[in-house]
Design a protein around this nucleic acid. Structure first.
Length: 553
RNA sequence: GUCUCCGUAGCUCAAUUGGAUAGAGCAACUGCCUUCUAAGCAGUAGGUUAGGUGUUCAAAUCACCUCGGAGACGCCA
């Protein structure tokens, strides 16, 4: 990470300077890319922060620091400039930029890979759709975000695992079974009453039909098991078409039904509720068992065990998160639809009661997706059981466009998905715009007579790349690792999609201005090296988004 | 009614988490193909960041109020 590299040097300079003046703690200064029109590659705001502490003019302070910075960084940056209210602006030497390019060509597909996570164990739980129907586009957004985040976590040196929590217990399972049963009877031409809150989707008929054809024994248990397995088959195949895979599937039944806690006497749900009660985190009232979540920032206490003896969903979820913590994860990331936001406080309370910091649980809430076609919203109704499935959208626009679009925006902002745009094969469509960079580069290579696999890192004279478009393009690439870090910091891959679009911009600008294949052999080689580096970064970036990088379009 | 999130260009959204003159893409308008993919590029126009008060060197970002939108408020999952 480029910022960290400079931060290290600056930390040394600043703390030496500060201690000579008896300043104990350095303020948390920022080191960021300044706005385009300012010029420069990195901007530091420390002088402005110190000015308050020292009651001195920030520009004065900057003037004192600049010679020290310039001395220390003389091999990397041009003389620093002081600008604005007291920013210290650093500009890379061309030689530093060329070294950056060389580094990309050496690292290739591991450019940007880091060990920053130090193998920290992170569990990302996402999708976790109930096995009562096919995945819809909302699940798709969660799937894309969760999957890409875990790809980025792994790439950045974390031990990231993906998990799907399967709610295969409770009311909804009974409802699923009776819905299938009703359709089964319907198809046999027998009397039936469809349950009031049953699942009305057409897929229930398909399941019943298949149940009938297989001549299975009609019983609630069989209806349920068969339906769940059919639905999960569908979900699995949708997920694999969407290039999403899970490291583990966690069945609620294993903690809610199996007696595998307390030496086999209790379920894990029972056991955790006992534990909470014994520890004073839960109490009995009105015949029910309550979790004292309000003690940990929740609005009110919540029921764990109903007065009729059945456990609530919350009880299962607490047991599940306890299980996650016991598996040694230091960070639990849950992706939930935004309609579950009211649930965050009680889950954080639970994590706290379980003896962990509430910060260990990070909940990413993602807003729902609305579809647009011909400029008009596509009606979605869950009431009638008619909702737009992920599969329908995948069949229409493809996995690449779908994944890219889902990650175009921050999770907490609503997403309007334009189906027409996603299908367009032109620069208006951001997916094609980015993929096109990759294809175009390979096309140039094909015509150059030089192999793409050529090792440009050695024996290439990068100094001939002097056009502003060329230097700008390299500068853009150098910051790729920093973008990945930003994605983790903000828990959103959308910075990466935005970055790739910007990189594509810089590339196309370069392409217009600088012809690659010319008579100048030295320049040809350097420019081929440049476009090779771009394809590497595009490939890495798209790979982390789960989007393909075609060589031909 | 209580709580949470949101309000940025005509539309969809960014803004490096408090930084400099708020940026992209659509849509609109003007140009650019006998040369590596025009599946592309360059440019013009578009803003009181819903409104107000405050916090500070600095506010779209933080606090409070008003208006407007969405969602959550069950011994459902």
């Amino acid at each position: 990470m480029i910022k960290n590299q400079f931060r290290k040097s600056l930390d040394g300079i600043f703390s030496k300077w500060a201690s000579a003046r008896g300043i104990e703690a350095l303020p948390q200064y920022s080191l960021e890319q300044p706005p385009k029109n300012i010029g420069g590659d990195l901007a530091c705001n420390i002088a402005m922060l110190l000015s308050k502490q020292l009651k001195a003019n920030p520009r004065k302070i900057a003037e004192e620091l600049v010679p020290l910075i310039d001395k220390e960084l003389s091999g990397l940056t041009q003389p620093s400039r002081i600008a604005g209210a007291g920013f210290i602006n650093l500009t890379f030497l061309d030689s530093f930029v060329y070294d950056g390019l060389k580094n990309i060509l050496e690292k290739k597909d591991s450019f940007g890979r880091a060990d920053a996570g130090l193998g920290e164990k992170v569990l990302i739980e996402f999708v976790s759709a109930n096995p009562t129907g096919p995945l819809h586009i909302g699940h798709g957004r969660g799937a894309a975000i969760g999957d890409s985040l875990s790809r980025i976590y792994s790439f950045m040196g974390y031990d990231a695992k993906r998990e799907y929590y399967l709610n295969d217990v409770g009311n909804q399972m009974r409802m699923l079974a009776s819905s299938v049963e009703a359709r089964y009877l319907e198809q046999k031409g027998e009397n039936f009453t469809f349950p009031e809150d049953g699942y009305k989707g057409e897929y229930i008929r398909d399941i019943a039909k298949s149940f009938l054809e297989k001549r299975l024994e009609p019983s609630e248990d069989n209806f349920r098991k068969f339906a769940v397995s059919e639905i999960m088959n569908g979900i699995n195949s949708d997920l694999s078409a969407f290039r999403v895979s899970f490291d583990s599937w966690f069945s609620e039944a294993t903690i809610a039904l199996d007696k595998n806690a307390d030496g086999g006497k209790n379920t894990q749900v029972e056991s955790v509720c006992e534990w909470l009660k014994d520890g004073g985190f839960a109490y009995e009232q009105d015949g029910a068992l309550w979790f004292a979540s309000s003690r940990y920032g929740d609005d009110k206490d919540r029921v764990l065990k109903r007065s009729d003896g059945r456990f609530t969903y919350l009880a299962s979820d607490i047991a599940y998160h306890k299980n996650k913590l016991e598996r040694g994860y230091s960070k639990l990331i849950d992706l939930w639809g935004a309609d579950h936001h009211g649930y965050v406080a009680r889950m954080k309370a639970a994590v706290q009661a379980l003896g962990s910091s509430p910060d260990k649980l990070v909940v990413i809430l993602y807003q729902l997706v609305s579809l647009v076609r011909d400029g008009k919203p596509v009606a979605m109704s869950t009431r009638s059981g008619e909702f737009v499935t992920l599969k329908e959208v995948l069949d229409e626009v493809g996995t690449d466009a779908c994944r890219f679009f889902f990650m175009l925006r921050a999770p907490d902002s609503q997403l309007e998905f334009d189906l027409d745009l996603a299908k367009k094969q032109s620069s208006e469509n951001p997916v094609f715009y980015v993929q096109y960079v990759h294809a175009r580069s390979h096309s140039i290579f094909a015509q150059s007579g030089i192999s793409f696999e050529e090792n440009f890192a050695r024996g290439t004279d990068f100094e001939v790349l002097t056009a502003p478009e060329e230097l700008e393009l390299i500068r853009k690439m150098i910051f790729f690792p920093d973008i990945l870090e930003l994605c983790l910091k903000s828990l959103s891959p959308h910075h990466l999609t935005a970055y790739l679009m910007e990189l594509a911009d810089s590339y196309h600008a370069f392409y217009e201005k600088c012809r690659v294949i010319t008579e100048d052999k030295k320049l040809v080689r350097a420019r081929l090296a440049l476009i090779k580096a771009v394809t590497v970064v595009i490939e890495n970036g798209l790979g982390l988004l789960g989007v393909s990088a075609p060589r031909k379009m």
